[in-house]
Design a protein around this nucleic acid. Sequence first.
DNA 1: TTCGCGCCTTGATCCATCTCAAGGCGCGGC
DNA 2: GCCGCGCCTTGAGATGGATCAAGGCGCGAA
Lengths: 255, 255
Amino acid sequence: MSARGIEPRRMGVPGAQPAHDPHCLPTAEACAVCEARPFSICAPLSTAELAELDRFSTTLHLPAGATFVHEGDPADHCFNITAGSAKIYKLLPDGRRQVIGFLFTGDFLGTATRGPYGISAEAMTPLSLCRFERTSFRAVLSRLPALEHALLDRTADELEAAREQMLLLGRKAARERVASFLLSLSRRAVRLGRVADPVQLPMGRTDIADYLGLTTETVSRVLTQLRTEGMIRLNGTSEVHLTRRAALESLCEGA
Amino acid sequence: MSARGIEPRRMGVPGAQPAHDPHCLPTAEACAVCEARPFSICAPLSTAELAELDRFSTTLHLPAGATFVHEGDPADHCFNITAGSAKIYKLLPDGRRQVIGFLFTGDFLGTATRGPYGISAEAMTPLSLCRFERTSFRAVLSRLPALEHALLDRTADELEAAREQMLLLGRKAARERVASFLLSLSRRAVRLGRVADPVQLPMGRTDIADYLGLTTETVSRVLTQLRTEGMIRLNGTSEVHLTRRAALESLCEGA
DNA sequence: TTCGCGCCTTGATCCATCTCAAGGCGCGGC
DNA sequence: GCCGCGCCTTGAGATGGATCAAGGCGCGAA
């Protein structure tokens, strides 16, 4: 049992005064030049629909380390990541932490709850995001079926991923977990139009450990072990070459 | 590592000839008397909408033990449980199994994938369900916004539950897992209009173990331990009284 | 260039849970 | 009412990963 949780920092998004928020910028034509758009739920929207949605959005820029969603707080907003990466996690009262997932460009956050937020979210790099007031967003959803479709598909995909992670957490050994993690990061990079092979790890060992249900020590040991076996090559601490990808693939599934 | 997987049985739903399927019954006015309706995604539908949806549904009745969804098969159908209970699970090639969840009256199955089924599903008791051909169902969704709303909400709830389970699998000790499980079953029973206290366990120890990422032996030991401590009382093997519910609640969270 | 700090790695030991191995017990069939 | 079989419980020993404990190393600040 890892009892070495991390105290979440109370910082980041100020409350409900977007007008006075230094991180809030007008979004007027922001969508037109948004690089995240092809990866976002906004992708299937027409220009008119986009404008409709945009009326309710605010652009935010946060520094790395900012916690912008707090588990248990009323779920007032939902978010669309437009640049940077973030992590979402759940905590137990004694500080044990489970990282639920990592968010990258185009990811949407906030579907999952109608009550309070079920997770906390923290920027891992400087982060840009569109923020929507939840109530208006739900109203817009009713008016834009394409958006609701996109959101349903995306939520279904997230559910599928969560189930895969349940298999990992419940039944896979440490080596298998790490291998699965590296490959899933690689696949994600491809979907975002980046390269499959040198995988970037924007998160630290502690985050990886808390995502995989392990300790940092174990993650570290497994990585060196995989390196020794020639399955990966480490470039510094946050870049991994997947030499022998096929071997990693079969390791994921228990071979 | 539990390597004692169970070989899934290939039985249950015949392929695509509903006309010749002895389990298929005409649904004509079935919805009107459906007891599962208040708990289902059909709940918010008007009579006319219900009729529209019903045109594409087939009623099935399966015996306990029937596997009616096979992980990896093309996802041709989705289902609505109208009576009985089922489990969904994922397998690793070597037989390790993770039970993803248990389905009861009113639960919907099939949102989660657009490609092949990501999970297998097996009846735990005699099971009644409405089956929809996936393609038509998606078409109907577009015509019935209320249905799509309901489905989105439900999928979001499932995602929330999956995340909670990730916390359990990644970070909770065996005692905490079992306590969490008993309480979640109890809460579910309440939502279905049953009693909160004598909790029924329609699944065996192996299923519980595979759901909690443990072994049957550990589940068994923890249950006797909790009994010894007076936190629960066992009535036979499949009924549990939650004496000292408060103690169980705090145990869930690590106390 | 050096210093200091945080993060990562490595080593030694421990322990919660798994694994292996017997029984026990309840339930359906005969 | 007895018998068998499957499932559940209990025990004893093995072990993967956690915990505890040092270093090492890279990077930013001065």
